[in-house]
Design a protein around this nucleic acid. Sequence first.
DNA 1: TGATAAGTGAGAAGCGTTCTCACTTTCTGT
DNA 2: ACAGAAAGTGAGAACGCTTCTCACTTATCA
Lengths: 162, 162
Amino acid sequence: MAQARQPHDLLAASSVRPSPHWPDAAKALYGPARMSAQRALIAEEVMAFPGAFTAEDLHRTVGRRAEGVGLATVYRALAAMQEAGAIASVGERDGSALLARCGRDDHHHHLVCTTCGTVVGVECPLDHAALAAATREGHLVTSHEITLYGVCAVCRDQKDAG
Amino acid sequence: MAQARQPHDLLAASSVRPSPHWPDAAKALYGPARMSAQRALIAEEVMAFPGAFTAEDLHRTVGRRAEGVGLATVYRALAAMQEAGAIASVGERDGSALLARCGRDDHHHHLVCTTCGTVVGVECPLDHAALAAATREGHLVTSHEITLYGVCAVCRDQKDAG
DNA sequence: TGATAAGTGAGAAGCGTTCTCACTTTCTGT
DNA sequence: ACAGAAAGTGAGAACGCTTCTCACTTATCA
Ligand SMILES: [Mn+2]
Ligand SMILES: [Mn+2]
Ligand SMILES: [Zn+2]
Ligand SMILES: [Zn+2]
């Protein structure tokens, strides 16, 4: 049965059961949630990504390092990371949610390179003047969604050169 | 067969076939696209909506005035209106796209009342200062998505009173 | 009025995401 | 170290919104 995969076949080869402890860098992404070999691998790939990615993107890169990691597992790991505040939804691409590492805890938004996926945080452009206009209309603004798209310096240079 | 519905059973009762001409107000929403009894009805309901709605919302209200209008027809009509620039996507609610009438042709964004769906246009809050910050990072901003959510004056008063 | 391109309704299909189930593994006391 | 409880896993089914397919009907225009 494919179900009977040993826990650390994914990372090491020992068949005894060592009390598993995981890299702190990976563990940090999941907050209080429980750790696993799959999640360690997923965390590494998330940290390797230069910017925004979809669940499928991630599942593909994970699949290059270990087989049999289910897509549902990737979705669950991403949900845990999001809950822990390690990643954030930064928009969408072709109907799939775009995610990216984001450790910041202050209010900000994201600027996504449409070519390479690089993400940079930008401060919220909604100043008092903008909100005043809404208030003038009688609206009380309670939340907002802002995503900027563009081309990063690296990709711009490559286009100029090519 | 349910397929054999007369063209104008939906609007009038004449069973002859008058050279059909449609209300200008309704026709305007579809631009150059072809007109039909269903689309006339759909356009009326769109114009009756105070603000944002989903495809299902619209299909429901249309269903109160005529039976047998397919959901696919509503989606196709909405696509035509969007192409004609008569409506715009203004966000999403519970996984469904939120649409609203929007005849403006200048660059602006939308503020949606989360209680009643009322939509008001707001001018783009991205000023030169905000874009300068992105440029400083090397990014060239090419597009952006902004949606504001809040509570309109009417709904705020109702909450205070109730 | 006839030809043609477009719209329609019902249901199937797509697609990203979530859920279910039986099983495995981590984690916390002791 | 050990046992028990709670959480994670993989495969595939299910889900919800949206789009497509097909046979048929209808608007539009010469
Ligand atoms: Mn960020
Ligand atoms: Mn508008
Ligand atoms: Zn780039
Ligand atoms: Zn309101």
